[in-house]
């Protein structure tokens, strides 16, 4: 896996770029926790999310076998592994898109055999998809505002007639969407149809749609896939800034090991549906099984800053 030192350097630089932190964001009540997550992650906090003995197969294909995973509040938790290792399946199990054959998901202490997808947003979980999943026929603004659709209280009749709370509700949702668009530097494209954006911006717009709900848990399935090195480091900066701003816990799937090492607090490594390593970036980097299975010849990366 090629690692770009340059890209990694840019991440560090832009993560701490003052203009990102200077953005005003709606989550006033969460700003107080702005610097807590890192500290929490370091301690032994009760897990926000725990997978226990998850098994999942499709026909004869074992996608996941006896996977345990715990995610602490406020951490950026990466899941890496080669193609087909079961990373997306894991996120699909967490978000209830798939039902695990074995095991269960513990979310804020509650235990689920299958997480109720239609209540996911209410539970404070948001996610993005490996393949673009924006609503192509809606503007970027409406896509992002739709991330708040679960809070809509008005019904269609009220909306048609424009009575009662509908107007206020819409203004409020668009206002929040606009703030997130500004945070992710998408304001310039806010009125464009989502389907007409270049790939990298669509990925970012999907992150915006997930963030607007201010989720407690954010699941990102390869948010930087197919991006240039520059775009990747930008995206990494946004992910970290989002975590710091919203005190959101992040589960991140990413192929680029360099990006992952710099960004995450802990990393789990999957291979053929099994978890073969789990630990801090340093621990994972030096794990012989990981090196064999995934990282390839370690000496290639010795001088790399990211690994």
């Amino acid at each position: 896996m090629p690692i770009s030192n340059h890209a990694f350097g840019t991440i560090e630089a832009s993560v701490y770029a003052p203009e990102i932190f200077a953005q005003g964001l709606p989550a006033a009540q969460r700003q107080a926790h702005g610097d807590r997550p890192r500290q929490l992650a370091a301690e032994d906090a009760a897990p926000l999310l725990a997978l226990e003995g998850i098994g999942l197969s499709f026909g004869g294909v074992v996608a996941l076998a006896d996977v345990d995973l715990s995610v602490r509040p406020g951490e950026i938790r990466a899941i890496i592994g080669p193609n087909g290792a079961g990373k997306s399946s894991l996120i699909n199990v967490i978000s209830g898109v798939y039902r695990a054959d074995r095991g269960h998901v513990r979310l804020y202490g509650a235990r689920y055999a299958q997480v109720p997808t239609q209540r996911l947003a209410h539970l404070g979980v948001a996610r993005t998809f490996q393949n673009l999943a924006l609503f192509k026929g809606l503007s970027v603004l409406d896509n992002v505002a739709s991330g708040l659709a679960y809070r809509t209280r008005s019904n269609f009749a009220g909306q048609i007639l424009g009575v009662g709370r509908t107007r206020r509700e819409q203004q409020e949702q668009r206002g929040r969407a606009d703030q997130v668009l500004e945070f992710l530097h998408l304001t310039d494209v806010r009125d464009r149809l989502a389907g007409t954006l270049p790939y990298g911006l669509q990925k970012r717009a999907e992150l915006a749609r997930a963030l607007v709900a201010e989720p407690r848990l954010l699941l990102l399935d390869e948010p930087m896939a197919g991006m240039t090195a520059g775009e990747k480091s930008e995206m990494a900066a946004y992910v970290r800034a989002a975590r710091d701003r919203f005190a959101t816990t992040v589960v991140l799937i990413e192929h680029d090991v360099g990006v992952v090492m710099g960004l995450s607090d802990r990393i789990a490594v999957l291979d053929y549906g099994r978890k073969i390593a789990d630990g801090t970036p340093d621990e994972v980097r030096n794990d012989q099984r990981v090196i064999d299975a995934y990282l390839g010849v370690a000496s290639d990366n010795e001088e790399g800053a990211g690994i």
């Binding site: 209540r119 996911l120 996610r127 739709s146």
Partner: peptide
């Protein structure tokens, strides 16, 4: 799927 996930 995305619509269901965001709570529509």
């Amino acid at each position: 799927t995305a619509a269901r996930i965001i709570g529509i």
